[in-house]
Design a binder for these strands. Structure first.
Length: 552
RNA sequence: UGACCCAUGGUGUAACGGUAGCACUACAGAUUUUGGUUCUGUCUGUUAAGGUUCGAAUCCUUAUGGGUCAACCA
C-alpha cells in the first residue's frame, strides 16, 4: 500500500515538465524582501519552494529582493535566514538581487540600444496621469521618442549621480494603450541617492521589482518562479522582458496567499503594530511572525504540518487559526514534559496526614522513554480554586463537600469541611485521605471520576505565567472598513505574576516543552532570570468541560 | 465601464469524463489517575441555468458571486 498523496497544482506542473523532459532538475527560490520579519504566510511559501526540491530533483536558493535601499536592512536579512533555518530548510545559494546590479544595468543598456527603453523626465504625477486607468488607455510621455543616443547619455548620467532623486526614470517602451496597465511603459529604474545595505554608495539608481525579479530568476536559471496571485498581471511583463533580453526563460506560477483568521499577515501592518508598540516587538508571542511563534513555543514541525495541511491552491481562502493550534497540540502532546502548576490556588489541608513523602510520576504518558520523576507531597497543598464547588452542578466531578477525587499520582481524598472568611471566600478546604489508595499501589477498590493537579505548599516554587489569546477580536481585521487596530483584542495577553509550581520546574531549559497538566502547553520565555522564571502558554488544552458548561 | 484570476460541507483541500474523499471544527458515545490523549460514530458540500456525453464537480456557453489591476513598493 503506497501512501498516495495527491499533488497540488504546482507539483503537477513540475511532474509534467520533468516527464516531458523539459527539465532534468528544477530550481526554485524563496525571494523575501529584507524589510520585515517572516510570518505564517511566508512559512507557506518556504515550505512550498523548499518542499518542491525535496520531492523533486533540484535545489532552492534563498534570494533577497533588495532593490529598495530605503526600507531594507541587514537586521531583517539575519532574522530571515535564522527563521528559514529554524523551520528546517537549507538553501543551496544565498543570493541578493543586489549581486546582479551590474548585470541589470547592462540589461537596461541593451533595452535602450534596441529602442525598447527611454529616459523620462516626467514627474511622478505626470507619469501617473499618463498611465490612464484600468478602463481608459494611457497617453504617451513627451519624452517617449528620444533618440537612442540621448537615452544612453541621460541614463549614464543618471547612474553617475548628476540628477536628484525622482528627477528622471528609465521606462520600458511598450504600449501606453495596453489593456494591462503594467505594460504601459513601466518604470525600470529610479534615482535614489540612498545607502544600500550591501552595495553601500556604489549606486544611486536602483531597478524596480519588475526589472529585477524576473532577471534574477533568469540569471539563477530558476525553472519555476512561484509567487502569489497579485503578481498574475506582472507575468506578461515578466515574459516580455525575458524575451526582449533573450535570457534564460524562467516561468512564473502563482498561488493564492494564505489568510488566517483573527490575525494579519501583512508586513506593513505587522510593522505598524511594532512601531506603535501595540506589541512588544517582532517576536512578541502574539505575533504571527515565525519569531513570535518560536517564542510562543510553536515547534518547526508543527508549522510545517500546518502548511502541509492547508495546502496550495488558487482560490481565496481564510484558514482557521484552530488548525494551527491543532497542529501544535498534536506535536506537543508527543514531546512535552508533564508538570503540575496551580494558577489560582486555594489551600487544601489533609487532616489525617503528617510528614512528607516523594511520589513517583511519569514525565510523559505518551512517551515511556521520558521516564519518571519524584514529586513532594505533604498535608498542605494548593489546588485550583475552580476545582472545588460547594454546590456542584450535575456531572461536575471535581471536589465538593463529601465528594472524593484523586490527587494526581497521590491519594484519593474526601472533602470534610470548608473554612470561609467573613466575606464567604473559601480560605481552606479540609480533607481526609485514603491511605491504601496511593497511586501505583491502590488497593482501595474505589473509582473516582475526577483527578486534580496540585502542589505541596512548602515545596512549591513561584513562577510567572503569560497567557495569550488571539491578537484580534474579529476573524478578518482587514476586511472591515474601519482601521484594523480598532479590532485588537484587549485581552490578548494575561499575565499571572505568581503561580505555584512543583520544584522540578526550577531546572527548566529554554528548549524544553512542558505541559502543565490540565492547563496547557508552556515554554520558558527569554525574559526569565535567575530566581524569576517566566513561562509562555503556547496553547491551551482542548477543554470539553469548559465548552460544555458554557453552553448552558 | 475594461481586462485578468477564482468558485466543492462551517474551514482548508482532493477527485484529472465513471461510487464526491481526507483533515480540522461541531455533535454523540467508549476508554482514561490530565474533562488532555486515544478509539468509534454522526451532521453538513459540487454557485446557478443551459449545452456536449451512455455518463459532468470535471468539457463548452451564459449568468451570479468573490478577488486583483491606476506606488519612482515588493
Amino acid at each position: 500500500m503506497s501512501e498516495e498523496k495527491s499533488l497540488n497544482f504546482i507539483e503537477e506542473i513540475i511532474e509534467g515538465d520533468l516527464q516531458a523532459g523539459k527539465h532534468a532538475a528544477i530550481v526554485t527560490r524563496f525571494p523575501p524582501e529584507p524589510n520585515g520579519y517572516l510570518h505564517l504566510g511566508h512559512a507557506s511559501s518556504i515550505c512550498l519552494n523548499f518542499g518542491l526540491t525535496q520531492r523533486f530533483p533540484g535545489y532552492t536558493n534563498l534570494r533577497f529582493d533588495d532593490t529598495n535601499p530605503a526600507t531594507e536592512e541587514t537586521e531583517y536579512v539575519n532574522s530571515i535566514k535564522e527563521d528559514v533555518r529554524w523551520l528546517g530548510f537549507e538553501w543551496k545559494h544565498e543570493r541578493y538581487a543586489s549581486d546582479y546590479f551590474d548585470q541589470l544595468y547592462g540589461f537596461a543598456v541593451q533595452l535602450i540600444e534596441k529602442g525598447l527603453a527611454y529616459v523620462d523626465d516626467s514627474t511622478p504625477e505626470e507619469i501617473a496621469a499618463q498611465k490612464g486607468t484600468p478602463t481608459t488607455p494611457g497617453t504617451d510621455s513627451p519624452y517617449r521618442n528620444r533618440t537612442i543616443e540621448e537615452n544612453f547619455d541621460l541614463f549614464t548620467r543618471m547612474r553617475n549621480g548628476e540628477f536628484p532623486d525622482g528627477a528622471r526614470t528609465l521606462r520600458a517602451r511598450i504600449d501606453m494603450q495596453h489593456i494591462n496597465m503594467l505594460m504601459r511603459d513601466p518604470i525600470l529604474y529610479r534615482i535614489k541617492h540612498a545607502h544600500h545595505h550591501r552595495t553601500g554608495n556604489k549606486w544611486c539608481i536602483y531597478p524596480m521589482y519588475d526589472f529585477a525579479h524576473g532577471q534574477s530568476d533568469a540569471i539563477e536559471e530558476v525553472t519555476h518562479s512561484i509567487c502569489t496571485m497579485e503578481f498574475v498581471p506582472h507575468r506578461e511583463l515578466y515574459d516580455w522582458l525575458i524575451r526582449q533580453l533573450g535570457i534564460y526563460p524562467s516561468h512564473q506560477y502563482e498561488f493564492a496567499r494564505r489568510n488566517i483568521n483573527y490575525t494579519v499577515t501583512s508586513k506593513r501592518k505587522l510593522l505598524q503594530l511594532v512601531n506603535e508598540k501595540r506589541v512588544s516587538g517582532w517576536d512578541d508571542p502574539r505575533m504571527p511572525t515565525i519569531s513570535g511563534l518560536r517564542r510562543r513555543g510553536y515547534t518547526p514541525h508543527s508549522i510545517r504540518a500546518f502548511c502541509e495541511r492547508i495546502g496550495i491552491a488558487k482560490r481565496d481562502n481564510m484558514v482557521d487559526m484552530g488548525l494551527l493550534e491543532f497542529c501544535v497540540r498534536e506535536d506537543l502532546n508527543q514531546i512535552a514534559l508533564r508538570r503540575m502548576v496551580v494558577f489560582d490556588p486555594v489551600k487544601l489541608v489533609l487532616t489525617d496526614y503528617s510528614g512528607e513523602e516523594w511520589l513517583s510520576t511519569e514525565n510523559n504518558p505518551e512517551d515511556p522513554e521520558a521516564g519518571h520523576r519524584q514529586i513532594p507531597f505533604s498535608n498542605t497543598l494548593y489546588i485550583e480554586r475552580d476545582d472545588f464547588m460547594e454546590q456542584p452542578p450535575k456531572k461536575y466531578f471535581r471536589l465538593a463537600p463529601g465528594q472524593m477525587v484523586r490527587l494526581k499520582s497521590a491519594y484519593i481524598i474526601r472533602c470534610d469541611e470548608v473554612i470561609k472568611d467573613a466575606q464567604g471566600t473559601i480560605q481552606e478546604i479540609r480533607c481526609s485521605h485514603l491511605p491504601n489508595s496511593k497511586s501505583g499501589s491502590d488497593t482501595s477498590g474505589i473509582n473516582v471520576k475526577g483527578t486534580l493537579h496540585w502542589v505541596s505548599v512548602p515545596h512549591a516554587i513561584p513562577l510567572e505565567v503569560r497567557l495569550y489569546d488571539r491578537l484580534f477580536s474579529v476573524e478578518d481585521p482587514t476586511d472591515e472598513s474601519a482601521d484594523f487596530l480598532q479590532y485588537l483584542n484587549k485581552e490578548s495577553l494575561t499575565t499571572l505574576p505568581k503561580v505555584y509550581a512543583e520544584p522540578a520546574l526550577a531546572q527548566a531549559h529554554a528548549q524544553e516543552r512542558f505541559q502543565f497538566i490540565r492547563k496547557g502547553y508552556f515554554v520558558l520565555d527569554r525574559d526569565s532570570q535567575d530566581g524569576k522564571l517566566i513561562f509562555n502558554r503556547t496553547v491551551g488544552l482542548k477543554d470539553n468541560w469548559a465548552s460544555a458548561s458554557q453552553k448552558k
